[in-house]
Design a protein around this nucleic acid. Sequence first.
DNA 1: CGTATCTACAACCATTTGGTTGCACGTTAC
DNA 2: GTAACGTGCAACCAAATGGTTGTAGATACG
Lengths: 112, 112
Amino acid sequence: MVVDTLSPDEVDRLFQALADGTRRDILTRALTGEHSVTALAARYEMSFAAVQKHVAVLERASLIAKARHGREQLVRANPAAIERARALLQSYEALWRHRSATMDAILAADRP
Amino acid sequence: MVVDTLSPDEVDRLFQALADGTRRDILTRALTGEHSVTALAARYEMSFAAVQKHVAVLERASLIAKARHGREQLVRANPAAIERARALLQSYEALWRHRSATMDAILAADRP
DNA sequence: CGTATCTACAACCATTTGGTTGCACGTTAC
DNA sequence: GTAACGTGCAACCAAATGGTTGTAGATACG
């Protein structure tokens, strides 16, 4: 509920990570189960390194986390980050409904 | 109904547009009132052309719309686009909850 | 042991992004 | 009519992005 203090950079990384179809697809798979990086990479036409970079972007945005399991790195989603993004958008809508300036979780995030 | 037909490209543009602090700031201003492009540009350090480009990015993402009013172009927010993005994130969370429910069911089935 | 597998990362390349300046054009004001 | 204003757009530039190949370090397997 509380849109806790997300720095503008964190918000940037969140939405930036979501602005790519391959990354959204990886996120979907991570939401429904755990997969190793190679298992994920096998699903796409691009190279393993490319998928690895996408996973890194999602990780920097805190949308996923990796857990070592032997020689594999298991990717699992972090629904809390998605919830933060959703709450942020919801606060934009609230801003619209109120149309008066005192409701600013986002402003707090954008103006430190 | 909720996750209506948004093409991947449209989703890309949506999140891409949101992945910049200046654009989010412009969006909040547009949500709370109408402003001309020059009025918006006056708020930021960057050049008018730079702000104009940000406005164009928001417009391509359907997050705002412009309406000519004499020689000015008035910028107003389109909350429906924000709602689409929010619903999209919510569907991701639903995916997660479904997975959790499935795992609960499996665990319950495993219990003797 | 040696070998195959999984991951990480560097170097490189093409395209996009976010910024600049300058110019053109329609509209308003004097 | 001329001057000022608001906008759109092109050309340019540095940095970031999304992809590639290649190399190297751990870890599992036969």
